[in-house]
Amino acid sequence: MSKEKKKSGNASALSWYKKMDFSKKTAMWGIIFLLPWLFGLIFFFLRPMVNTLWYSLCSMQLVNGKFQGTFIGTENYKWVIGVNTNFNRMFVEAFTNMVKEVPFQIFLALFIAILLNGEYKGRGFFRAIFVIPIILATGVASPTLSSAEAQFATETAEAVMDMKWLEELVINSGIPEQLTTLLVTYVENIFDVVTTCGVQVLLFLAGLQAISPSLYEVAKMEGCTQFETFCKITLPMVSPTILVCLVYSIAESFANAQVTNGDSTIAFSSYIRSITFNGNAAYYGYGAAMSFIYFAGTLVAIGVICGIVSKGVFYYD
């Protein structure tokens, strides 16, 4: 008796769930799956963001160890864009660097990943090697590495200079000059690019591995050439990964952008930090305004580029 009662009790408790149609159930479970993330988003991201936005609209003061802001509208933004002599130039520089860097980075990463992917002897070794840049790029061991890398970079630059005749050949071949200078900078920077595209290689490798081998078998049976196989199978199947890599590369490129400041180069983010935390609380509003403009620019760049690219991305659904 009691068992039956329990059963019926359960049934009535769950009946509202069973009566729900599938789309509503999906939505409910979607929210349940998202709960931890939503919690984090609201408390550890949006609230700090809104606070920062508020700071950027305020003139900040440090009173008894606490920040106090008085609302001054868009004064800070006007100062950043109109008065500060460096910000606009730095921002444009960061943007052009990104446009130059990112396509080459993606291309090289895909190329390396395809090379790493096949069946060959020692692939375990090579795959292990190409994770090293990710570890080293995080800034562990940066002081020694940067000097070692700088030394290496000059060595390699000299080695590249020996190829001057090739450079001249390319320049004199009638190809537009902007294109050749771009190519030459690519060749000279290949060492930097290889060391910064570790993550993209790893993402592409995972993307390539997820392609079903049966697709390649079919292509082979139908007599596709290697190039056709690449265009019709590999490229569409890794296109979602290309999108991820684009977003990541653009964000990273902006975050680590090196811009000229006087005679030397400086990281854009550290320039903003130096303005924000220069000991005077009044500058905190300026810094907040700067970083807001900065990431709004990043967001627009990512939105436009990925909006175009995502048209060509292939999904199963």
Partner: peptide, 26 residues
């Protein structure tokens, strides 16, 4: 598991990638 507004929420995921840590550090 799409629901109304989940695409808008996904925009915030991109925002968390893009926003430099420095700006919300304090």
């Amino acid at each position: 598991l799409k629901f109304k507004g989940s695409n808008i929420l996904f925009f915030f995921v991109i925002l968390t990638i893009v926003v430099p840590g420095d700006s919300i550090m304090l």
